[in-house]
Amino acid sequence: MPAFLTPLQYSILEAVCARLVPADGAPDGAEMGAVDYIDTLLGAFTFTPPRIWAGGPFSGRFGGESSFSDFEELSPAEELAWRTRIEGSLGIPERERLGPVTGLQDTYTRGLAELGEKFLALDPAAQDDRLREVGDFTRLVYGHVCEGLYGAPEYGGNRGLAGWHYLNYQGDVQPRGYSDAEVSGG
C-alpha cells in the first residue's frame, strides 16, 4: 500500500524508473526500489516519526544493533521546513516567508498526470522521447532514483540492497569498518 501515490501514479512511475535505469544483468530502477523510495519521501509525514532522517548509529548489516529504522523526531522548525518542501506552501503564511513553494507532491502529481496512462502503452524508445520532452520533471525524478537506488534501504529504496550489490559496494560498514590493509592496498 503506497504512502502517497495512487495505483495509476505508481504504475506510471514504475515505467519511468525502468527507463531511467533500465534492466541489464541487474534489475531495473523500479525493481531495485526507486518508486518505493520516492513514495516514502512524498508520504514521509504519514509515518511517525516522519521518514526524513533514519536513526543511528548502526544498520546492523555489519554488526551492532540495528537502529536505522528508528527514524529521528523533527523539531518544529524542521517539520515546517520539510512539510513546506514536500507538501508545498499551500497558501499557509508561515510557509510563504520566502515566497510560495511548490511541493514535491504537487510536482509529482502534475508530472505523472502529464505523462498519463498512455505512457504505459508506449514502446521504450517512445517512452524515452517523452521523458526527454518533459526534461525538468525527468531530471527531478532521476535525482530521486539515484537516491533510491544507492541510499540506505530504510528510506524505502535499494530493495534487498540490489543497488549496492551490483556495484560490489558495501554501504554502511560501521561498526566493522575496514582494515588498515584494505585502506592502503591496491
Binding site: 526524513i52 532522517w53 533514519a54 536513526g55 543511528g56 548509529p57 548502526f58 544498520s59 537502529s67 536505522f68 537516491e147 544507492y150 541510499g151 540506505a152 528510506y155 554501504g171 554502511d172 560498514v173 560501521q174
Partner: peptide, 13 residues
C-alpha cells in the same frame, strides 16, 4: 553513539 554511515541523511537532507 548517534551518528551513522548514511549518505542521504548527511549529504542530501
Amino acid at each position: 553513539q548517534r551518528f551513522s554511515n548514511d549518505e542521504l541523511k548527511y549529504m542530501t537532507r
